[in-house]
């Protein structure tokens, strides 16, 4: 049986340095992060400036408009302050998810620490910008309007708990989806090789998991986009709280 977990192993490529006693290593994950940055940068910077865009320029402009529209619809025009942040998040997650589907590659977002760090970035941005922009009015976020005074304490407690569990749900959603998808793909793909080793009957039987692997790859492509989009739209909704608390 091929180990479906092996694909998530981090291999140290070289050591960058030490912080205290902790070794900071350049790993597979670092390499794929840089690859994602390079892909996005090259794509964005190599796009033409034609009045009538070609295919490549269209892709770049579509992603620009897509993220811009997502922000405008869920966080209002004020949300465009965070356009670079949201665009970076979306493209980073999307590109690394798509790259991760290619066999033998590594998926950055299949590690909880990465998705948690990104979710924490959004969470801290919301808190810092929320207090910077609204001052103490930011606490209105925990006090919804039109709630009877009697149940107000309960509602406030629930709001606070849900606010502080945001980075967890935000990060685990992306992590779990990518992890589960890749494990599933690997398991089905390993069925193909296992059955294939069992002679002619096995080879015929291997067609079913092979077909499923192909279908799952398609599904994973969709999940790769969808989870990047979900992460982005949740970011926009959380940022909306920082811009307009008390809604």
């Amino acid at each position: 049986m091929i180990d479906p977990i092996e694909q998530f192993h981090l291999n140290k490529i070289f050591t960058i340095g030490h912080i205290g006693n902790q070794e900071i290593a350049f790993t597979t994950s670092s390499a794929y992060m840089l690859l994602a940055v390079v892909i996005i940068s090259v794509m964005m910077l190599a796009a033409g400036r034609q009045l009538v865009p070609g295919r490549f320029q269209s892709v770049v402009e579509l992603s620009y408009e897509f993220v811009a529209n997502t922000i405008r619809t869920s966080a209002g025009s004020h949300g465009m302050t965070f356009f670079p942040l949201v665009f970076s998040l979306f493209m980073f997650i999307f590109v690394s998810n798509i790259v991760g589907i290619i066999p033998y590659t590594f998926t950055i977002s299949s590690h909880i620490i990465v998705t948690f760090a990104l979710a924490l970035l959004v969470f801290l941005t919301v808190i810092i910008y929320g207090f910077y922009k609204n001052g103490l009015k930011f606490f209105k976020l925990f006090v919804p309007s039109g709630i009877p005074v009697v149940i107000m304490p309960l509602v406030v407690v629930i709001e606070i708990i849900s606010f502080f569990s945001r980075p967890i749900s935000h990060s685990v959603r992306l992590f779990a989806n990518m992890l589960a998808g890749h494990v599933t793909l690997k398991v089905f793909a390993s069925f193909v090789t296992m059955l294939g080793a069992l002679g002619f009957v096995g080879k015929v039987g291997a067609l079913l998991p092979l077909g499923l692997t192909v279908a799952l790859t398609g599904l994973e492509l969709m999940v790769a986009f969808l989870q990047a989009y979900v992460f982005t739209i949740l970011t926009c909704i959380y940022l909306n709280d920082a811009i307009h608390p008390g809604h």
Binding site: L10, K12, I16, I19, Q22, E23, I24, A25, F26, T27, S29, S30, M33, L34, A36, V37, I40, S41, M44, L45, A47, R49, P53, Q57, V60, E61, Y64, E65, F83, P84, L85, F87, S88, M91, F92, I108, H111, I113, V114, A117, L118, L121
Partner: peptide
Amino acid sequence: PSQIASLVIAFVALYVIVSRVALPKVGAVI
């Protein structure tokens, strides 16, 4: 720690490129 360090480096680099160069350029074209 290694992953966080490389993520910080990569994401800051991406953010700087995107906010300083890429988005203004594409936005100007649009």
